[in-house]
Measured scan of single mutants.
Amino acid sequence: RPMNAFMVWARIHRPALAKANPAANNAEISVQLGLEWNKLSEEQKKPYYDEAQKIKE
């Protein structure tokens, strides 16, 4: 299954978030990633939607 825009973004940002929160488990990191993603504007998300579309094609 191809990655969606959030997954493209999260793949880039997960390592830094995990390093900054070494005690957090994957579920907690995923929740935090979701919160951070939701704070982004549509303009900030656009490159990730574009990349996800390329992956689908």
Rank of each mutant, 00 (worst) to 15 (best):
L17S: 02
M7F: 12
M3C: 09
G34D: 13
A18K: 15
Q32G: 03
L40K: 02
R1M: 14
H13L: 04
F6N: 00
F6C: 03
V8K: 02
Q32L: 15
A24F: 14
V31N: 07
N38M: 12
A24W: 15
F6M: 04
K46S: 05
M3T: 11
L17I: 14
E42A: 14
Y49M: 09
Y48E: 00
I29Y: 02
E57S: 08
A27C: 07
G34F: 15
S41A: 08
A23T: 12
K39D: 05
R1F: 12
H13F: 12
N26L: 09
A52Y: 12
A20M: 11
E36I: 15
Q44V: 07
A16L: 15
N38L: 12
A52E: 05
P22R: 03
I55D: 08
N26P: 14
Y49Q: 05
K39I: 04
I55E: 07
N25E: 05
K46Y: 04
E57H: 10
R1K: 15
S41V: 03
Q53P: 02
W9C: 01
I12F: 05
K54E: 08
R1L: 13
H13T: 09
W9T: 00
I55G: 05
P2W: 11
D50C: 05
V31K: 14
Q53R: 10
V31R: 13
P2I: 09
E57D: 12
Y49G: 03
L40A: 01
M7S: 09
A20K: 11
L40D: 00
S30E: 14
R11I: 13
L40R: 01
L35W: 08
S41R: 04
L33N: 00
E36A: 14
E43L: 10
K46A: 12
I55W: 06
P2Q: 11
E57P: 09
K39Q: 07
K19V: 08
M7C: 12
E51V: 09
I12W: 07
E51N: 03
I29M: 04
R1T: 14
D50V: 13
A23K: 13
N4V: 08
M7N: 09
A24E: 02
D50L: 11
A10C: 10
Y49N: 04
G34S: 13
P47C: 05
N21Y: 13
E51W: 11
A23F: 14
E42C: 12
A24S: 09
A23C: 07
K46R: 10
K19S: 09
E43M: 11
K19Y: 07
M3K: 07
K19D: 07
A5R: 01
A20G: 06
Y48T: 01
V8C: 07
W37C: 00
Y49A: 11
W37E: 00
K54A: 12
Q53N: 11
H13E: 04
N26I: 10
P22G: 03
A18R: 15
G34Y: 15
Q53H: 09
E36H: 10
N21E: 03
A18L: 14
I29E: 02
P47G: 04
G34R: 15
